[in-house]
Simulated scan of single mutants.
Amino acid sequence: MRRLFDEELADLDTSFKEMGLLVSETIQRSVQAFLDHDRATAQEIIDSDQAINQREIALEKKSFEMIALYQPVTTDLREIVTILKAVSVIERIGDNARNIAISTIHVKGNRRVADIEEKIGNTGQIVSKMVADVLTYYISDDAQGAASMSETAHQVALATQNIRDASIEAMKADAENVEAATDYLVIGGYLKRTSDYVTDIAEWVIYKRTGKIVELNPGTSSFI
Rank of each mutant, 00 (worst) to 15 (best):
123 T>E: 03
45 I>G: 04
82 T>N: 07
74 T>R: 09
36 D>I: 09
97 A>R: 01
142 D>N: 15
114 A>P: 02
18 E>Y: 00
124 G>K: 05
56 E>K: 10
38 D>I: 09
101 A>Y: 01
208 K>M: 14
158 L>F: 13
138 Y>S: 02
90 I>Y: 00
102 I>Y: 06
24 S>T: 01
152 T>H: 10
51 A>Q: 10
211 G>K: 08
7 E>P: 05
168 I>H: 00
102 I>M: 13
203 E>P: 09
55 R>V: 05
37 H>N: 11
22 L>I: 11
3 R>S: 13
184 Y>E: 03
140 S>W: 05
213 I>E: 06
46 I>A: 02
170 A>P: 04
84 L>E: 08
182 T>S: 13
89 V>L: 13
69 L>V: 13
119 K>F: 02
61 K>H: 09
144 Q>E: 15
145 G>C: 11
109 G>E: 02
155 Q>P: 09
172 K>L: 14
127 V>L: 08
175 A>G: 12
55 R>Q: 13
202 A>F: 01
83 I>N: 03
131 V>N: 10
101 A>W: 00
7 E>S: 13
13 D>Y: 13
174 D>Q: 01
137 Y>T: 09
155 Q>C: 10
131 V>R: 00
79 E>H: 15
25 E>D: 15
139 I>D: 15
60 E>A: 11
144 Q>P: 12
112 R>C: 03
22 L>C: 09
77 L>R: 10
77 L>S: 10
211 G>Y: 05
118 E>P: 03
91 E>Q: 03
190 Y>L: 13
126 I>Q: 15
10 A>V: 11
58 A>G: 07
224 I>S: 11
196 D>Y: 09
115 D>S: 07
204 W>N: 14
190 Y>N: 08
192 K>F: 05
90 I>F: 00
186 V>Y: 08
